[in-house]
């Protein structure tokens, strides 16, 4: 009797839990899981946007991908962007967060100023940077000419276009990462620093041996978020370079968009999207295995 009452209470509780989860599950199923399954299905077919006719291809799209020079170029560009931008943005964010964690006057203004780029819509920010990078009349070239660096069309030069977008991304994301890291720094107990100071530990060693280990869960989170951001980079490329010049800034998400919407080749775009999903998923799994184990959770 007692058991059956307890069981029915648990069933009721579980029922309520599923009921409460239902709205978000329905949304996830409709707008995330179903499209993923559909894109897997499409990747084995010839599908053209706007046309209901679907032709079975087997693995042809995947074979095409292996031989597609532009896919490998976009893949390389995305990887280069990630490898450079994420560490750079996180380092800048960490240094800013540590600097802004002190008790200086007008700190709120500094924090707002560094967070400001995050609040600017990506398209507007992209347009502003197109102007900043302009040859001849752009402020960046004007500034660089003062130290003798010749006028360069940063966004039209296949060597410099991607690094130019990367600089802008660091500017845009550092503030966001800074805010998250700053919140983590506030949770580090101040008595640890006081004890270290009494023991004559230098500021650098305090950063390496106290701050970093104690904010490592947040740092781990920031790395994962940064990685996801870097594989979603689209808006800056669309606004600033459209993948050019000479495909120098073509990245995977932009290439997927081009295939799916510009070329109406939905089957191939789905193939690319699946490969991207697998790759990013794999990368996160590797990071979780290598880095996740080193994360210190305070009090555990």
């Amino acid at each position: 009797m007692v058991i059956s009452t307890a069981l029915s209470a648990r069933i009721r509780e579980a029922g309520l839990a599923y009921l409460l989860l239902l709205p978000s599950l329905a949304f996830l199923a409709a707008f995330t899981y179903w499209p993923i399954l559909r894109s897997i299905w499409f990747s084995f077919h010839d599908v053209v946007l706007g046309d209901s006719k679907i032709i079975w291809l087997g693995l042809e799209n995947y074979q095409r991908l292996l031989e597609d020079r532009l896919f490998w170029k976009a893949f390389g560009n995305t990887a280069f962007y990630t490898v450079i931008t994420i560490p750079l943005a996180i380092t800048c964010a960490l240094l800013l967060a540590v600097a802004l964690d002190s008790k200086l006057r007008g700190m709120a203004i500094y924090r707002s100023a560094f967070f400001y780029p995050v609040m600017i819509p990506s398209v507007a920010a992209g347009m502003v940077w197109v102007f900043l990078y302009s040859a001849s009349y752009g402020p960046i070239n004007k500034g660089l000419s003062l130290i003798g660096i010749p006028d360069t069309a940063w966004l039209y030069d296949s060597k410099w276009a991607l690094p130019a977008i990367m600089v802008m991304s660091v500017w845009k994301y550092s503030g966001y990462f800074m805010l998250i890291l700053l919140a983590a720094l506030k949770l580090v107990p101040s008595d640890l620093y006081e004890a270290a100071r009494l023991d004559g530990i230098s500021a650098w060693n305090r950063l390496i041996h106290i701050t970093l280990p104690l904010i490592s869960p947040t740092l781990y989170f920031v790395i994962i978020i940064g990685l996801l951001h870097s594989y979603q980079i689209f808006d800056y490329v669309y606004v600033m370079t459209h993948g050019g010049p000479a495909d120098a800034t073509n990245v995977l998400t932009f290439y997927i968009y081009q295939n799916g919407f510009q070329y109406q080749d939905v089957g191939y775009a789905s193939t690319l999207a699946n490969v991207l999903l697998l790759f990013v998923g794999g990368l996160i799994a590797v990071i979780a295995t290598v880095f996740g184990r080193r994360v210190h959770y305070l009090g555990r």
Partner: peptide, 21 residues
Amino acid sequence: PGYHKVREYLKSALDRTLAGE
């Protein structure tokens, strides 16, 4: 047919040639 992709292939060829690649 597929003029869009064809344009991109050609533009890419022109760009890469002018960039000396």
